[in-house]
Design a protein around this nucleic acid. Sequence first.
DNA 1: CCTAACTGACTAACTAGTCAGTCAAATAGA
DNA 2: TCTATTTGACTGACTAGTTAGTCAGTTAGG
Lengths: 196, 196
Amino acid sequence: MDDETEAAVMAATSRALCEHGYADLTMQRIADEWDKSKAALHYHYDTKEELLESFLDWTIARFDSRLACEAANPCERLDTFVEALFGPAEESDGSFAIALLAMKAQAPHSETYRDRLVEMDARMRETLAETIRDGIEAGQFREVDPEDTARFAATAINGSHVRRVALDERPAEARRLFEQYLDVTLGREQTPEVPV
Amino acid sequence: MDDETEAAVMAATSRALCEHGYADLTMQRIADEWDKSKAALHYHYDTKEELLESFLDWTIARFDSRLACEAANPCERLDTFVEALFGPAEESDGSFAIALLAMKAQAPHSETYRDRLVEMDARMRETLAETIRDGIEAGQFREVDPEDTARFAATAINGSHVRRVALDERPAEARRLFEQYLDVTLGREQTPEVPV
DNA sequence: CCTAACTGACTAACTAGTCAGTCAAATAGA
DNA sequence: TCTATTTGACTGACTAGTTAGTCAGTTAGG
């Protein structure tokens, strides 16, 4: 199966999942979004389970690639991070967040899902912790515990994610508070007078 | 329908939802957990949708009652809050968190769910903001913005909740970081030297 | 002509919801 | 008080519709 076909199926799955939700996600609906028959779907993926695992992999890969940043400056790297998580792409679309939360909610019932989400989280935290370590070493950030700070930041990101999906809260609001938290905690910029 | 019956059905729904997940939650499975027939369920609740809306109401009511605290001291009220969210009940059980996240993930596809979750969140944030306001007035907390701080705290709580369900992370870990955040942000206790 | 990609029609299993009838306990009538 | 009737809670069997997955056969390109 070529990459183009895979991408088309994954995009169709994403659309179907956003429109109908995980509970009402059927092979027929994915096929409809793909504009092919249900049997064509089964030609490429033996079972629904197999398709959905591929979809989780694809989703995580997209997430990883968005977070990738080669900048040397820790501050800059953090900005890219925030931009990837709360930027205009997230603001307008939201399908990514909806699909990902659907699978997070399914994690307690699927070891496969859970394992991959744990891996994805570990990678994100490691990226964050490393950036914080570098920032401290460069004298740009305060001397916080990098692992703890990364974990709490990840928790805040997870929280923003749920709120965006479950409460339909604007990512811009979450972004403002998250950046404020980073500024205060890491001692970036000028005014830690009245922190939040 | 008496309260006892309702409680039994709600508990059965909770068990079925935790065991099978929202996607595989059927009237038959709820009935099995209740040890009654599927028809008995339809005798009390006309449709599955009606039953699940009742279940969300019941879940939110349980959440609210857990957060209730009459203490006058803001610090104490905050402690009760943390205890209710991360305490031993949450540590051992987890069914509450799993069920709630299942419905949060479903929110984009159900206005009813979304409305109720938004209300529940507003109540939680208002409780937090008021406690913070009182704490500032009493000179116990730093002069932070109560609404912003409450919103970010709520986001961190939401995040801990997802991590507990999706990543199977221990609540005790989340609690430690959350309390550290509160201590530093609100200026509780002694050492804001090396904040996280 | 061969093969990869695909279709439409099919099946077996499962779904929400219905319905006629059961049964015990409450209620009413004498 | 004894009996007749009603009522609320429930059951097992049923229906109509939907689901994942199969399969024989079609089609287009090399």
